[in-house]
Design a protein around this nucleic acid. Structure first.
Lengths: 179, 179
DNA sequence: GGCATCGTTCAGAAAAATCTGAACGATGAT
DNA sequence: ATCATCGTTCAGATTTTTCTGAACGATGCC
């Protein structure tokens, strides 16, 4: 193999396509980053999504210009999100990965559970605070009138109910309809 | 005023309530942070949400143990999200703020527009890449078969359609039903 | 077995996000 | 007009997050 270029596929037309792919990848990274998921996870998924066939870990790292270490940890995240499939290739010991192209799978098995988990701890704390509020009614500071205590309790209940409703929606199959 | 404690309200019962409020505040911060919104914004909203009356900027800073500068920038963010109301108090030049307790307002005017904006740039890039793909069909690297080009185009279209559908849902009043 | 290559882990480096103190303009009180 | 106080801004410091190179165990090949 006389090829030494970092790009695995030999391109006759350096063209704008490669540049566009790079843009696409970065846009993916910015998107996931905007939602608090880190930039690499989006960049990597974008790369795999535009890749018709599976890619090895090293190729991924080369394409994204990151270390093998980062590629390893990030691909694991993508697997947790069900956004990527591990695809064994015969006669090759290396790990090959392919993008999950059915977004319903990603949403239902990755996104929604992830969101639910994040909301979960919030809900736990709301319940806990509400409990402390109710059981220790006389424990508030002297400056707080009974009216104010009532307001607080009301608000906590509203928060609790909202959380419960949200969690219900996210865990039900209601959203399937829209995807 | 003989009081020197950092806590603005004189509490007769140091009690578990103050501690619980602190927990609540931190949980709020962790939640917003988990969704990529920074920790302070959640802490500050949590504080105001448990506060029956409006708080001045300086009180907020003191309660959260942050500088006035941070309080200023964060409250502005909360305002953009419509999560907080500026409430003028007579005979007091200072700015007082109150939590928006109607979550529907926050979701419709803060959350959803914010999400749409973030998705927007992603959608723009998808369209752009799809355009580059279609118009420059012959520009791909030599290693890519016509089949592969077809796959890529298909995927980009799927992504575009998904984005369009999502954006439609988010901009419609469809979600009102659930809140 | 011996060797080469793969993926993973982790301490430390590099980068990015966040926070702050000081300086400033604005506003109202005296 | 003078002064005190408020909110804002921004360069620099601090903290947090992210990334990497080196070391390692595992796995397949010879």
């Amino acid at each position: 193999m006389p090829k030494a270029a970092p790009s695995p596929s030999s391109d006759l037309q350096p063209a704008s396509w490669e540049r566009e792919v790079r843009r696409f990848i970065d846009a993916g990274g910015n998107t996931t980053h905007a939602f608090g998921l880190g930039r690499l996870i989006g960049r990597m998924f974008a790369l795999l999504y535009l890749q018709p066939g599976p890619l090895s870990l090293e190729e991924i790292a080369a394409r994204l210009d990151i270390s093998k270490a980062s590629a390893s940890t990030t691909i694991r995240q993508l697997e947790e999100w069900h956004a990527v499939c591990h695809r064994p290739v015969e006669g090759d010991r290396r790990d090959y990965y392919e993008a999950q192209t059915d977004f319903r799978v990603i949403v239902k098995q990755g996104l929604l559970p992830g969101i639910r988990q994040k909301l979960g701890s919030a809900g736990t704390q709301i319940a806990r605070t509400l409990d402390a509020e109710v059981s220790g009614s006389g424990q508030h500071s002297a400056s707080q009138h009974p009216d104010e205590i009532k307001i607080i309790r009301k608000r906590l209940k509203v928060a609790r109910d909202l959380h419960a409703k949200l969690d219900g929606i996210l865990s039900s199959r209601l959203l399937d309809h829209f995807l």
